[in-house]
């Protein structure tokens, strides 16, 4: 077959067109998909991941696979517990009080102490000298 014949044969493929019902259904479902998921969710990758998470968990539980479900539940529990700090190193306690509370109390006491030191000392008022007339007056009363 010559090159011309091959090229002519290719041009006949222009007659290929999709089924009209398929085209309509596909178009509607594509446009609908965008309406369900807001545009901003696609703009941000992290938002997209968050959006995908519920679908992911649903899929795991929908298949009723016990082991992956338990593993996933354990993973979630570990994330929550570590997030709240329950698995972190325990603070040493003094007489039932949390170490940080004690430190805070110390800080307050030190501040008060410092402020007391800073207060200007009030000197006792000197008695004013009295004149002889005044003293005589007091003596005669």
């Amino acid at each position: 077959m010559t090159e011309d014949k091959i090229i002519k044969a290719f041009s006949q493929f222009k007659g290929i067109s999709p089924d009209k019902n398929y085209a309509l259904f596909s178009k509607n479902s594509i446009l609908e998909a965008r309406r369900i998921v807001p545009r901003e969710n696609f703009a941000n990758e992290s938002k997209r991941l968050i959006f995908a998470m519920p679908q992911f968990t649903k899929r795991i539980f929908a298949f009723n696979k016990l082991v992956p479900s338990l593993a996933f539940a354990a993973l979630l529990f570990a994330i929550i517990v570590s997030g709240t700090g329950l698995l972190g190193p325990k603070q040493p306690k003094i007489a039932g009080l949390n170490q940080s509370l004690v430190a805070e109390a110390k800080q307050i006491i030190e501040t008060i102490d410092y402020k007391l030191q800073e207060e200007p000392k009030t000197e006792p008022k000197r008695e004013e000298s009295k004149s002889i007339d005044e003293l005589l007056k007091e003596a005669t009363l």
């Binding site: 493929f13 222009k14 290929i16 999709p18 085209a23 596909s26 178009k27 965008r34 309406r35 545009r39």
Partner: peptide
């Protein structure tokens, strides 16, 4: 900008080309 009608027109034009 999110106008589905506009994308629909692009779809109608390019669907046969991409499909074949």
């Amino acid at each position: 900008d999110g106008e589905s009608h506009a994308f629909g027109l692009l779809y109608d034009w390019y669907l046969p080309k991409i499909y074949r």
